[in-house]
Design a protein around this nucleic acid. Structure first.
Lengths: 148, 148
DNA sequence: GCGGTATAACTGCGTGTGCAATGATTTATC
DNA sequence: GATAAATCATTGCACACGCAGTTATACCGC
């Protein structure tokens, strides 16, 4: 097996590890968030992303990228959250095709309830993954990626 | 902000990076595999996992863990692949509740077509992610996780 | 052996997703 | 300035998913 073949296998192995860890964490988060605050992981991701944005507004497309969702899925995701009063649509003045989304007070409130659940569940899931030999190296590598 | 709070934020940041990279890669793989060999990413994962197994057989539950899928989703996933003749169900002799799945010759053949597509797409997706500042550190860390 | 409990896999149901096509607005070309 | 091409968001449709409940088999205490 040559060097190039090794690289291919190493990439595939890394991807399998990444996918496995991702699936594990997402499954746990999904259970915890839906049962405690009736939010799916993507829904939480949207609220969290909005709260990190200056002025708490984002365009649909940005949300799509942030969640790795298609445009149609983003539309319906925002629909659900808007119907629950957690965010509002705001028309863009400068580009009237675009639509901004903003957290409502209710959305911010729910997010403060959801965040501890999210963080504790993430900690537990990572600790569990830490005990699996094939996942441990990636779990240990994650905190080293932090930047300012 | 105390040390504990920092740890929470670092974990969340790591998780967001992991999720973003995973979403990006999965979306690209999905497009490439469905258009070229009509396989979804999870379907490819199953065939690939089976091919790596001694004797090419696995139990349903193992497949569920390997793909981070529920039991019901695993059942229907195996149904789809079986209907296409890519794998077969084999009853377990020792535990008659369990069911083994085995790759067929046709499944192995399709896998050999799919693997280059998968590997090249993965390489391109990682290269693209490598150019995004927030994803680059994780992309660079992945190959270092490889074990013997 | 015989009950009760646990486990493996399967089905009904509601829901979230992507793709393709559509409507509305902006940008480019002439 | 009018027409064409591109972009943002939304809808119709088919399909894959998770949850809860079901069936079949294995395990345990007696």
């Amino acid at each position: 097996m040559g060097i190039a073949d090794d690289a291919v296998e190493i990439r595939s192995q890394g991807w399998r590890t990444l996918a496995a860890l991702h699936g594990l964490i997402e499954t746990e988060l999904e259970r915890a968030l839906t049962s405690s605050v009736a939010l799916s992981v993507v829904e939480y991701t949207v609220l969290d992303a909005l709260s990190r944005q200056h002025g708490w507004h984002m365009r649909m497309q940005q949300l799509g990228r942030a969640t790795a969702l298609s445009a149609s899925a983003t539309t319906r995701l925002v629909n659900r959250l808007e119907e629950r009063g957690l965010l509002t649509r705001v028309l863009c003045a400068d580009d009237r095709r675009g639509i901004y989304t903003e957290l409502t007070a209710s959305g911010q409130k729910l997010l403060t309830e959801a965040r501890p659940v999210h963080d504790e569940t993430l900690e537990r899931a990572l600790a569990a993954a830490r005990d699996m030999p094939e996942l441990a190296p990636l779990v240990d590598a994650l905190p080293t990626l932090a930047r300012a």
